[in-house]
Design a protein around this nucleic acid. Sequence first.
DNA 1: CGTACTCATCGTAATAATGCGATAGCATGC
DNA 2: GCATGCTATCGCATTATTACGATGAGTACG
Lengths: 112, 112
Amino acid sequence: MSTEIERCCPPAAEGPDLRPIEGGEADEQLAALGKAIGHPVRVQILRILARKSSCICGDIVEELPLAQSTVSQHLKVLKDAALIRGDVDGPRVCYCLEARTLRRLKALVGGL
Amino acid sequence: MSTEIERCCPPAAEGPDLRPIEGGEADEQLAALGKAIGHPVRVQILRILARKSSCICGDIVEELPLAQSTVSQHLKVLKDAALIRGDVDGPRVCYCLEARTLRRLKALVGGL
DNA sequence: CGTACTCATCGTAATAATGCGATAGCATGC
DNA sequence: GCATGCTATCGCATTATTACGATGAGTACG
């Protein structure tokens, strides 16, 4: 069997986003995404993931002056908002940006 | 003396934004703006202000199913984030979008 | 002056977010 | 199996947010 079980951070090529950019649903989505990026540490995490073109695991903890549990909690917030994805890679977890949601956020903010 | 003391929502023509789009400062700004739009009601308020091309005062309260004091509190959050501006017009207050900050938000989100 | 109107602020209660240490889960290597 | 390393989750304390009613500040009108 192949040892290349999965790679995180796929090339990211998807179709256009057909979801509406305003209305009640959109408002909720924008608010949820806004809340997710509404903390400096979480913005920093997004930047770290963007910088490392390849995805990264818990090195994020090393880059931040916070306890591991706290970073894990922020990662959970970002994951729940679908701004990042975490693929298990052996004993560690490989996080990466979820490009689709990021595009969605840009579209929603752009519609303001 | 003229009775036209001031109009809120000026034509909005300003130069380009020279502030950096990333770095510690930018992260803080993005997080602060994200937190400000991180509530459905506040997103709705922004939409209301965008819809009424002219600025509006406390009619916002009428459009929302919330107490006046609660709306006022949300308006304060948006004002503290500089996403809106409130000009006093006689006994009432005229709120309008702060286009400059909105552009700043779009630029910051776009840089993600 | 006094009333009416609009809006901000205060006080309060309930809920959510933040951060940490401790602990549990899980895959890997000996 | 057992120890090790990485991550998630739990429990807890502190602080922030949200929502409301009540009250206060301010202007306009009679």
